[in-house]
Design a protein around this nucleic acid. Structure first.
Lengths: 213, 213
DNA sequence: TATAGTTTGTGAAGGAATTCACAAGCCATG
DNA sequence: CATGGCTTGTGAATTCCTTCACAAACTATA
């Protein structure tokens, strides 16, 4: 099978969100046109995206909402539970740890770590903040699948390397640095500064450029 | 001037972060090679990105770090202060409002809004949570440049439309829905669910695909 | 001033992602 | 069961983005 573009996977995620909504509203069938409108893209793009993984629709009718939802969840690997650790119990780490949406979507937060002795031992819900010094041993023992990095930028690279050395293969990085890691580790970046700067650029050059999504 | 790709603007942001670092460390000159290594790209890409905006380097030498930093800040529109409102005083809104990094980078949070009467009136730092019902009037009066949306998904579209009707032209959306807005409004999405699902996909199809950035 | 060693800036080539456009297939109706 | 109206699935065309490759320009050294 061909390599699937990152942009395609992102869109599948968007389609899935809207499909889940539609299913709970009792919708039976959805066209690529509808999916496109709600996903901010074109119907051709929707059909192309789905076609990489199979043939899910009926010509003249559209896609069966419930079945397509299940298929997308399978494709994205959401049919299983993922074990997640959060590294950094600062503002954002705390907000994420307490956000129940993750758990609902199959992302199970099993531990939170911090370097600050004053934070270690404190509790949120059923989680106790652990000492970052134990992270390698814990990762080896508990085999989490994904780490969410919410440490200061200066520490991100070092911490990431420790996680990778302990066997972690997927990182969601909130620190505003580009992590340099082996190619077999998947990294996604969430960079608020970058997004704001993108808006700043767009506002500044509004005349020069057309619209953007 | 040609339309600049979104991906280019994102990379400028990354270059800038590293350049600022370098300048404070006393670095005089940086090559496209160095910039590329730290930005997770290639030297040709760096040179191409910069070339859209002018000629900043010296052949045989590289780029003067301080000057290039200034130029990038200008290009990205960071030479001015931006007025930012946060809509939604939940977990994430709170974390963002208290995060001082924004202010330091020229993004000034001037107000926070929420629909919950119990939250309205409470204070963080020098900010008082305002009632969402006042948001249109306030936006018209205070003319913020950017809105950060951290409301529940169900409300995001409606709230966004109200903001746009009041004249806002740039939105950073944290809700997991694709906003449908006029083309002259710039929207950036931060979608944690999507990023996690991207990791899930990568872990699930590790064999099928190569590495990803 | 000449030469060796770098590194930029940029057309041209190549590759990747999106859009076009239409045949194939399905449903509903009479 | 034939016809009209839709909508999918997909090669081909197109547009967009990245990489290549090299002349031009700079520094350092002798």
């Amino acid at each position: 099978m061909k390599r699937i573009a990152d942009s395609t996977v992102r869109r599948l995620s968007v389609y899935l969100r809207f499909l889940e909504d539609s299913v709970t509203r009792g919708v039976q069938t959805i066209s690529s046109e509808e999916l496109a409108r709600r996903g901010g893209t074109t119907s051709a793009q929707v059909r192309k995206d789905l076609s990489f993984f199979g043939s899910f629709g009926k010509r003249g009718l559209g896609y069966p909402a419930a079945e397509l939802t299940t298929s997308l969840r399978d494709i994205l690997g959401l049919d299983k539970e993922w074990r997640v650790v959060i590294i950094g119990a600062g503002k954002i780490g705390t907000a994420l740890a307490q956000y129940h949406g993750f758990r609902q979507r199959g992302f199970n937060i099993i531990a939170v770590y911090d370097a600050d002795a004053r934070k270690v031992g404190s509790k949120w819900d059923d989680l106790v903040v652990r000492d970052i010094r134990d992270v390698e041993a814990d990762v080896r023992a508990e085999q989490p699948d994904i780490a969410v990095l919410t440490v200061p930028g200066e520490e991100a690279q070092t911490v990431a390397e420790r996680l990778v050395a302990a066997g972690l293969k997927a990182i969601l990085n909130f620190a505003p640095v580009q992590l340099q890691l082996p190619a077999d580790v998947t990294v996604r970046h969430v960079n608020m500064a970058m997004e704001l700067e993108g808006l700043s650029y767009a506002l500044t050059n509004r005349d020069r450029n057309g619209e953007m999504s």
